[in-house]
Amino acid sequence: MASNVVSRQAFITSSIEIARRFDFDGMDLDWEFPQNPEEMHNLGELFVEWRRAIDHEAKTTRRAPLLLTAAVYFSVDFFLDETYRKFPVWSINQNLDWINAMCYDYHGSWDTSRTGAHAALYDPNSNISTNYGLRSWIRAGLLKSKLVMGLPLYGKTWVLKDPNSHEIGSAAVAVGPGDNGVLSYAEIEEFNRKNGAKIEHDMDTVSTYSYAGSVWIGYDDVISTTLKIGFAQGLGIRGYFFWALGSDTSKAWVIED
């Protein structure tokens, strides 16, 4: 769709039409992910043309312009992949209202050999962390007012090799309960309660994990989430979002601003 001006225009026109038909506030693009520098360039061009069309539509209809946002990788560049590429920060600054950085899924079912904090704020052993990712966007020139931090309302599960070794990074042999080793926050609370799980807060990564028998779950709870929000406030970025609200418990969270 993004590879040429004709298909981009068809997509843009239909997206604006649908957003107005259903009285949406705007549109959020979730492209996971552009695979090479050419696709990153096409993404930048898409944003330019999309913003131009949004502004034109707002002017001709005398309505407030639709919002335009995008879900993006936790880091500005794909430093872990064989094909290096970087998001078009210049186009994002000029054309998007903000980006939603997906600061989660750092670890999961693709590596069953050890447990991991899948949304670690810090990682003492690598750059796979929210701290590194958000700061990489800022170093690349993204305006802080355009940057929003993602928070997960789900956890990743593993089966421990040795139930007596249950820290972050402990040896594992398989994914644990849930759909491909994923449990919603509500399901994690239920598991912890029914199994008398031990809950730990790891300050090195600013994350939470629980374990019962050989099952290990890495996630965020009210404590680690509150600390992450404080980090975002200190960094001076626009805000934070949760993925996804349907995974939350019915019990209300209270988070101090």
Rank of each mutant, 00 (worst) to 15 (best):
T157M: 14
V148G: 05
P177E: 02
V254G: 11
S113V: 02
V173K: 13
S210L: 00
H166R: 14
T205F: 15
S136H: 03
D123M: 01
R238A: 11
A244V: 09
P177G: 02
S165Y: 14
G178F: 10
E256L: 10
T112E: 12
S210V: 01
S247E: 04
V222R: 08
I128C: 07
W243H: 04
Y185R: 05
S210C: 02
V159Q: 15
K198P: 11
E200M: 15
L121I: 04
N131I: 09
G169E: 04
L183P: 00
S129I: 00
K194P: 05
D220F: 08
V175H: 07
K161Q: 12
E256T: 08
L121R: 13
E187S: 06
S250E: 00
I138Q: 07
D257K: 10
L160Y: 09
D248K: 09
I223A: 03
L153F: 14
N127W: 10
L147S: 08
I217D: 01
T208C: 11
K194G: 01
D202E: 11
S184C: 15
V159T: 14
G169F: 14
E200R: 15
W216Q: 01
F231D: 01
H201P: 14
G234H: 09
F191E: 03
T208M: 11
G230H: 10
S224T: 13
V222E: 07
G150W: 13
S224R: 09
I168Q: 10
A232H: 09
V254T: 13
V175Q: 09
P124M: 00
G239A: 02
G239P: 04
G169D: 06
D162Q: 07
W253H: 10
M149D: 04
N164Q: 11
D221E: 00
K194Q: 13
N131W: 11
Y219C: 01
I223C: 02
S207C: 14
G176H: 01
M149C: 12
S165G: 03
Y132A: 04
W158L: 02
S247Q: 09
Q233D: 07
I255Q: 03
K228A: 04
A119T: 07
G155M: 08
G246I: 08
L143N: 14
P152T: 05
D202R: 12
I128T: 07
A186F: 06
S126W: 05
G176E: 03
V206K: 08
N195S: 01
A171N: 13
N192T: 03
E256G: 05
N195L: 03
E256R: 08
K146N: 08
D179S: 08
K251R: 09
G181E: 03
R114P: 05
W253T: 02
L147H: 10
G155T: 02
P163S: 12
G155L: 04
L153N: 00
Y132V: 03
I188T: 05
K161D: 09
I229D: 06
K156N: 07
T225Y: 12
G116A: 01
N127K: 14
D162Y: 12
I138M: 12
